[in-house]
């Protein structure tokens, strides 16, 4: 077991765990996009950033790829982390506003503006599909091609892959493919309708401890209610 400090609390976690796993184990939710329990950590979406080290010399690392160490000091929701995370979500919104996952993140983390031109790109290159195909489906039909802003997910040489069995695992896991719910602002780059909901659980749990994904209030139909409300001009 390893002793570490998590948001000011001294905790004991198993050796070999990542910071993300440790934090979730202790009930603290850190947002992720490219992380999935069943796949190897990748560290590309940068949403799971946490601040480690004593203040003054602290740095931000992706918690999904950073293992716990003896005496490690971790802050998962410090001002610096929250500020950067919100900026990242704003960038995600500008890149792929048509994704429900990203819209949900925006509402959950109170991102209420997008200062960049929306681009409606299809892929955010989180790499979930690539890992899903290789690690769970034993397919290895897709991978990354090119570099920098030309980077894309592709089959070798962009031709139909012999390895692909059309299992659909890539689509199943893709966060960008999940289309938006029928909220009140469905045409806008930023919906934020869920921000105005009375979340039933908030009386019991803190914001960063909510694990319902997507938000249960929304699932229970509150999203549709909000839409109706906004039509009546009451929102």
């Amino acid at each position: 077991m390893v002793q570490m400090t998590l948001n000011g609390l001294r905790v004991e976690v198993e050796e070999g765990m990542t910071i993300l796993e440790a934090a979730r184990f202790y009930g603290i939710n850190i947002p992720t996009l490219c992380y999935h329990e069943g796949l190897s950590p990748y560290g590309a979406c940068r949403l799971c950033l946490v601040e480690i080290g004593p203040s003054g010399q602290s740095k931000l690392v992706s918690s999904c790829t950073h293992r716990v160490e003896e005496g490690l000091v971790v802050r998962t929701h410090s001002e610096r982390v929250v500020k950067r995370r919100k900026m990242l979500i704003e960038l995600y919104l500008a890149t792929c506003p048509q994704s429900r996952v990203i819209q949900d993140l925006a509402s959950k983390y109170h991102v209420t503006r997008v200062r960049f031109t929306p681009r409606y790109e299809d892929c955010i290159l989180c790499g979930l599909c690539v890992r899903m195909c290789a690690e769970q489906m034993q397919g290895k039909a897709i991978g990354f091609a090119h570099r920098g802003s030309n980077r894309k997910v592709a089959t070798p040489f962009d031709v139909k892959s012999e390895e692909c069995r059309l299992c659909g695992g890539c689509m199943y896991i893709c966060p960008a493919c999940q289309s938006r719910c029928q909220g009140p602002q469905e045409e806008e780059p930023l919906c934020n309708a869920c921000l105005n909901l009375d979340q039933p659980c908030l009386n019991y749990f803190d914001d960063n401890m909510c694990f319902m994904d997507p938000c249960v209030a929304c699932e229970l139909g509150a999203g549709r209610e909000a839409k109706a409300k906004s039509r009546d001009g009451r929102l």
């Binding site: 570099r147 920098g148 802003s149 030309n150």
Partner: peptide, 17 residues
């Protein structure tokens, strides 16, 4: 922008923006 490996969202999209 052209030399970034493109893995991290913040670098790839950040530099672009």
């Amino acid at each position: 922008k052209s030399e970034s490996c493109g893995k991290c969202f913040s670098c790839r999209v950040g530099i672009d923006r």
